[in-house]
């Protein structure tokens, strides 16, 4: 059954949000400086929700371009 693996580039793009919002928690989990009135950790996560969408949009472009190329080759 094993299906076609995602491309390395798409996987790397997917890894960015994990680094930013999960593994690096010790670096950004603080109150100051407050941004737009929000504690820094909350503002950081909210900002990264938007940036995650951007990363995944890029991954989407990578994957669809690859599928299109595969389709032409066939």
């Amino acid at each position: 059954m094993p299906v076609k693996k995602p491309s390395l580039l798409a996987l790397l793009l997917g890894l960015i949000p994990f680094v930013a919002t999960c593994f690096t928690v010790a670096l950004w989990d603080r109150v100051d400086p407050m941004i737009l009135g929000l504690p820094f950790n909350l503002a950081w996560l909210l900002g990264w929700i938007g940036l995650t969408s951007l990363c995944m949009w890029a991954a989407y472009r990578v994957e669809t371009a690859r599928e299109k190329k595969d389709g032409e080759r066939r």
């Binding site: 798409a10 997917g14 949000p17 994990f18 919002t21 996560l45 929700i49 995650t52 990363c55």
Partner: peptide
Amino acid sequence: ILAYITLGYVISFF
């Protein structure tokens, strides 16, 4: 909660 929902969708992509 904010992080897991976001990253859960990243995993779902793959």
